[in-house]
Nucleic acid binder design. Structure first.
Lengths: 148, 148
DNA sequence: CCGTTATAGTTTCACCTGTAACCATTTGCA
DNA sequence: TGCAAATGGTTACAGGTGAAACTATAACGG
């Protein structure tokens, strides 16, 4: 038996470690977009996410927002409270179930949405411009699988 | 001129919006891994990240950790402070530059590293198992490009 | 040399976040 | 019916986070 050298410890190589790379990429991208609206509209990232859901599915309850965004229910509750406070979202009560809220963008909310959405899309395009068409298709398929 | 209907507003479709999908995926994966060590070792995600850097690049300064992780310098400072406090990292001072710290894992730090690293790798394997070999190669190339 | 500027790292502050406990309402079933 | 369990949503608390200000040391330029 030849004596072994130091057992090596096998450190992770972060630069090839998928969860790490995803985290860096996601943070970079999201913060890049957020930088455009956080200051300009005093709008947090969670608030913006809620707004995008309300834009796409009007008259939903807070619970549906939670389901559709995978955000924490407390985070949604607070984001909605701030949006209502700021006059960007109208909150009503569901007929027949007084627990449920009914949320929708106000005119002011829509105005902000219509300014921010194109900025967000532009960022996405910029990101995707780094890939060729085949790669874009591949990425889409891969994300579908990983998110399933 | 035919009067237009409602101007449409063109809401983002989050479920096809790349930054959003990346964010969901990244959070799911990172939290899945963190769930394994946060409770068990009283170790935060930022502390673990610092440890992985120190495992791979012994004797670095806090600044180098910042550069390699894209983490905030304040976050690193605090994570290091807690790790030192817990006896998992030894902090020295650089010869010839008293501002710089010299960080490395202690034996206790290595022991934790050697337990957590395989768990992290197992999670990565589990995630990648959803893809076939061609897709894994594609994903790697795509991430290289997007992160460049 | 000596004063200005830059750098490594920490502290402070104001805010965001998740967990758990909570309140009000509704549902389910005995 | 009527009461326990479930559900929608908020509040309280105990951290975590980044920006900006601060301290100590080092580098630079006259």
């Amino acid at each position: 038996m030849i004596p072994e050298a130091v057992p090596a410890h096998a450190p992770l190589e972060l630069e090839h470690f998928l969860p790490y790379r995803l985290s860096i990429l996601s943070n970079t991208v999201s913060q890049g977009i957020a930088a455009e609206y956080v200051e300009r509209f005093q709008l947090s990232m969670t608030e913006w996410r809620v707004m995008t859901i309300l834009a796409r599915f009007p008259e939903v309850s807070a619970r549906e927002v939670v389901e559709r965004t995978a955000m924490d229910k407390v985070a949604v509750s607070r984001a909605v409270a701030r949006l209502v406070e700021a006059g960007r979202v109208d909150r009503g009560t569901h007929d027949g179930d007084k627990r449920r809220s009914v949320l929708k963008l106000s005119d002011a909310g829509w105005a902000i949405h219509d300014e921010v959405a194109p900025l967000a899309r532009a960022h996405e395009r910029e990101l995707l411009a780094k890939l060729d068409e085949a790669e874009r298709v591949q990425l889409d398929r891969i994300l579908d699988k990983l998110l399933a």
